[in-house]
């Protein structure tokens, strides 16, 4: 999986680091002072993740938990995301990570205790009257490599002590082995991103198929965990309504609707830099075969009537199929 493994000298002897290194016994690990000395210091082309992916293991410094942008999550509670990893093994053509770090290499941060302390502070001091949400998976897939990072258990233990706060693990993975070892908690939600099958094949390179993800969702709900779904990003196609109708039917034939806490709907959008990266990395992708415009907030999107039509049609389909209006939220849209 990884060509080379680099480990910060400070954390080399931590049990968590050693446990990760056990997975890569056949790859020489090299000791470095700080991840920042190398990661992102030079511009490493994104598509090198296909044949030249390195792993960095270190300590997250600076801000460990960050406030999420407006309209990021469900409801009107405060939303935060925490950073325990950078980058992803999957290769989605629309992924914003391709324009974010200047390197596709994977980074694991192992100082979860410090991240946990910050989450506690925000939950118990800053928002003690509210019900804050904490999202994992903003810069990485939160389950895909969880069998290597072994961090799921830590966060379950943490949120057992924080019943008024929510934790969301965002994923496109079906790697639920570590998750299923945990006793379900009311305040931990596993959210799966889904697209219609054909779109997943075309754009979610290296990811599990939609059907496999839906099967994983069933397994997770059967074990008693709460789930959520992200129909995001939606990419416009002539018959997108039929495709989303089909997808919703597939979901509902496998998962009990009442087990789905919420379903978010979002239309494909990019920052200017990410859009440029997409055109460079995937010039033949049919997701580019549509008009995009730059909007007032600097994002590159479909023109308003098109994205609003997509959002309203998909919401309509969800309501028609039995979802309640308060289960559906429109993501990152004004």
């Amino acid at each position: 999986m990884f060509n080379r493994v680099f480990v910060e000298e400070d954390i080399l002897n931590l049990p968590r680091t050693k446990k990760i290194l056990e997975h890569f016994k056949n790859v020489d690990h090299e000791i470095i002072h700080r991840i920042d000395d190398y990661f992102g210091r030079v511009k490493k082309p994104y598509l090198q993740k296909r044949d030249n992916l390195n792993l960095y293991i270190g300590k997250k410094r600076g801000q460990l938990v960050k406030e999420a942008p407006n309209a990021y999550g469900f409801g009107s509670d405060p939303h935060y995301y925490f950073i325990h990893s950078y980058n992803c093994i999957y290769e989605c053509e629309y992924c914003y990570l391709q324009g974010y770090f200047n390197s596709p290499d994977i980074v694991f941060f192992v100082n979860h205790e410090e991240i946990g302390e910050e989450i506690k502070r925000l939950s118990l001091e800053v928002h003690k009257e509210k019900r804050p949400w904490f999202h994992a998976g903003e810069f990485s897939d939160s389950l895909a490599l969880s069998h290597i990072t072994s961090d799921i258990e830590f966060y379950f233990d943490l949120f057992k002590e924080l019943p008024n706060s929510f934790l969301e693990f965002r994923t496109k993975s079906v790697n639920t082995k570590d998750l299923l070892k945990q006793k379900p908690l009311e305040n931990i939600i596993i959210s799966f991103s889904l697209s219609p099958s054909e779109r997943t094949k075309k754009s979610d390179l290296g990811c599990p198929s939609s059907m496999t993800r839906i099967k994983a969702m069933r397994k997770v709900t059967n074990a008693g965990h709460k789930i959520a779904i992200h129909l995001d990003p939606i990419i416009y196609e002539n018959n997108f309504e039929e495709k989303y109708e089909e997808l919703i039917q597939e979901i509902l034939s496998s998962v009990d609707l009442t087990k789905i806490l919420y379903i978010s709907v979002g239309v494909v959008r990019f920052t200017k830099d990410v859009y440029r990266q997409v055109t460079q990395n995937y010039p033949k992708s049919d997701l580019l075969a549509m008009e995009f415009i730059k909007t007032a907030d600097g994002k590159v999107r479909y023109p308003r009537p098109i994205r609003m039509k997509i959002l309203s049609k998909v919401k309509e389909l969800l309501l028609k199929n039995g979802f309640k209006a308060n289960q559906v939220y429109l993501c990152m849209e004004d």
């Binding site: 511009k43 082309p45 200047n102």
Partner: peptide, 18 residues
């Protein structure tokens, strides 16, 4: 070669060329 990087006085520079 797949990517060309640069080091000036042994310090890696950001810009690279595929």
């Amino acid at each position: 070669v797949r990517t060309a990087y640069l080091a000036l006085e042994n310090n890696p520079q950001f810009k690279s060329f595929p």
